[in-house]
Write a protein that binds this DNA or RNA. Structure first.
Lengths: 226, 226
DNA sequence: GCCGTTATTGACTAACTGGTTAGTAATAGG
DNA sequence: CCTATTACTAACCAGTTAGTCAATAACGGC
């Protein structure tokens, strides 16, 4: 029983695939051009679906962007396999925590760009998200555990704020990646070059470990607030 | 000889003031909404001049943005009074360099945002700038000088790349400022709070100095690239 | 086989956006 | 004074943008 003989091509329906294609195109679009710079028409063209299907599934440009953002953040935590570092010797565990954080940032430039983009928009979208917030306790816990064990064993200094340590580990890797375009130009060096990245990785690990393993000799005393 | 009697209000001409008002409005607009999100009409309305005057003086939205960007970067280097740190004892000089860099970032959030915005656009505008590039040798030189003297006096470790050190000093301050909106939400802490900022300042100084003053004991050997 | 639901589409729109046209008048130089 | 330049304006334009309408047809349950 031949249906559709010499007729209009049967429209294949595949909601999951359509949704996925839209999300993939949207990710690329927003990562490339930002939220204000991203174009819904381009997302539709790129994903090969009709523009209205985007509104059917996601409701608005902002909601689509939020979905992209939530997925990226969820990925971040999912890939961050830090729990298995908790049992390692503190110095070794911390080395691995720093270098794997670094590697993860290097491996996912999309994440870096979306984080920047979201902060340009004052984090307004993420704040409206329901799903992202609970995900973040884990990494901080790992830092706390390693820190405490290292201090008990006498290899790490006392009085280290885990939040500050987290901000430092991330910041040391983040800045030279997020700003690599302006920095490469201003410093006359290709910061994206493989050798540079590896060198930076070693430097970052070294700096964090030096800080942790040195007895806190410098009081933050005489550096006055201007 | 009264001219303009009971007639149309004489149009006051003041090119410098108009130009300045446009630039000021443009700075606020681009810092608030980004380049793609910034609106020329809004800049015109805010500065109180006719929109075409913007095109008369600057030619295009992009060119206006570039001018704003160049001024912010020029300010950065102008305010960075690092030359007078070169004569200080190395440890003291470096402490001041780190804390003043930190303070400067805290004091000029516009700079942070424009740096992020420009990097979202892959640094394309800055690269086209003629005026900005030569400004950057100075800070790196100050770092080199302090570093060398500290090494000669035996208080700083050997084999420190000045560029990496610069990236670390900046990164430690930059990240928690540029991403404070998302981080405050994710970490459940108000990173903009005065106490937090001061605490972070001390931590950053401490980390950099700990790194510099510790003999380089940890080889970057067994941390393998994944 | 019938029917409500839903995936999908093309055509459309109202508001907006960067940029232009065409013109007026203040000003500086001679 | 005369004239060329320049500061400045109002109105307009063509193209774009996010979002909508109305219709079609594939699908799943009965």
């Amino acid at each position: 029983m031949e249906l559709n003989v010499g007729a209009l091509p049967k429209v294949v329906r595949n909601p999951e695939a359509s949704r996925a294609k839209i999300l993939e195109a949207a990710r690329i679009e927003f990562v490339s051009y930002g939220l204000s710079g991203g174009r819904v028409d381009r997302i539709a063209a790129q994903s090969g679906v009709n523009k209205n299907l985007i509104y059917h599934y996601f409701g608005s440009k902002d909601a689509l962007y939020l979905e992209v953002l939530e997925r990226i953040y969820a990925d971040l935590r999912a890939r961050q396999q830090d729990e298995n570092l908790r049992g390692l010797p503190p110095v070794e565990g911390m080395k691995r925590l720093v270098s794997s954080t670094f590697d993860h940032f290097v491996a996912t430039p999309d994440l870096i760009r979306l984080m920047s983009i979201e902060n340009i928009h004052y984090g307004e979208h993420l704040k409206r998200s329901k799903s992202t917030k609970p995900l973040y306790g884990g990494l901080l816990d790992t830092i706390r555990i390693l820190l405490k064990r290292g201090q008990q064993e006498g290899v790490f200094r006392a009085n280290v704020d885990p939040v500050d340590l987290y901000l430092s580990i991330s910041g040391l890797a983040y800045f030279f990646l997020s700003n690599q375009h302006t920095l490469s130009w201003l410093l006359d060096r290709d910061l994206a070059a493989r050798r540079r990245v590896l060198k930076r990785r070693a430097h970052v690990v070294e700096m964090v470990l030096a800080y942790l393993t040195q007895a806190s000799s410098f009081e933050a005393d005489d550096v006055d607030v201007e």
